[in-house]
């Protein structure tokens, strides 16, 4: 028996919104420690890795590990039926071929349940080695979203260049060029407005705007985003979920031909 209850059901809605652009289907791996998911987009350029720890749920029971393969478009349809203040419970029997979502209003006066068919997915799991990144940038997630949106109007790619002084995002296209520079500023009133750079050596990497824009669908999940970069390895874009886990995206760089 698997059962996970989340009073803050809106969080689950937001998690789904943050991945459904990139993934049509994925397997939610449920274990005693929590729920995790790892999947590449169909072009194998980006990967989503998320983790929701069991202690972040209000009630969590997982008698044995279960893999819940889901069509995320269909899951999103069902999640749309939950109100933002609903309590959401996910339930599945061991070896079941369906999953049940229960939505309760805070006053318990309306209880809805939706049963969805599960899928048997052949998922490739990638081993991601621990890496010491040359540059780690922490910045407001809204700022990152804004920059990705703005620069995708200029070109298809964004060059992210990071030095001790700051981080620069650049794009070039038929109409011209655009650059956005952010200076390091740890001395702000609110922690979430800080731009903090930890640099071992400077890096400059090129990434496709399309994927970066998809990653920013996770913006409502966290006030800050963390970008981890090293030369010629995939970028990691991480949104930390308070007391719960994380949503991470990996993106393969573009390289000079």
């Amino acid at each position: 028996m698997f059962e996970a209850r989340l009073v803050q059901g809106a969080l689950l809605k937001k998690v789904l919104e943050s991945i459904k652009d990139l993934l049509n289907e994925a397997t939610w791996e449920c274990a005693a420690t929590g729920i995790s998911l790892q999947a590449m987009d169909s072009s194998h350029v980006s990967l989503v890795a998320l983790n929701l720890r069991s202690d972040g749920f209000d009630k969590y029971r997982c008698d044995r590990n279960v893999s819940l393969g889901m069509n995320l478009t269909n899951m999103a349809k069902i999640m749309k039926c939950a109100s933002n203040d609903d309590v959401i419970t996910i339930k599945a029997q061991d070896d079941a071929d369906t999953v049940t979502f229960v939505f309760e209003t805070p006053n318990q006066e309306k209880i809805s349940d939706y049963e969805m068919k599960l899928m048997n997915l052949d998922t490739e799991h990638l081993g991601i080695p621990d890496t010491d990144y040359s540059c780690i940038v922490k910045m407001p997630s809204v700022e990152f979203q804004r920059i990705c949106r703005d620069l995708s109007q200029i070109g298809d790619s964004v060059v992210i260049s990071c030095t001790k002084e700051g981080v620069k995002f650049s794009a070039a296209g038929d109409l011209g060029t655009g650059n956005v520079k952010l200076a390091q500023n740890a001395n702000v009133d609110k922690e979430e407005e800080a731009v903090v750079i930890e640099m071992q050596e400077p890096v400059s990497l090129t990434f496709a705007c399309r994927y970066l824009n998809s990653f920013t669908k996770a913006t409502p999940l966290a006030p800050q985003v963390q970008l981890s970069m090293s030369s010629d390895v995939p970028l990691v874009v991480e949104y930390k979920l308070e007391d719960m886990g994380y949503v991470r995206y990996y993106l393969a760089p573009k390289i000079e031909d």
């Binding site: 194998h44 990967l47 990638l126 081993g127 080695p129 995939p234 393969a252 760089p253 390289i255």
Partner: peptide
């Protein structure tokens, strides 16, 4: 000109 790399060329399938 730039070409897009794929994640499989960086990470191994386990």
């Amino acid at each position: 000109n730039e070409s897009q790399t794929r994640l499989d060329s960086f990470f191994k399938v386990t």
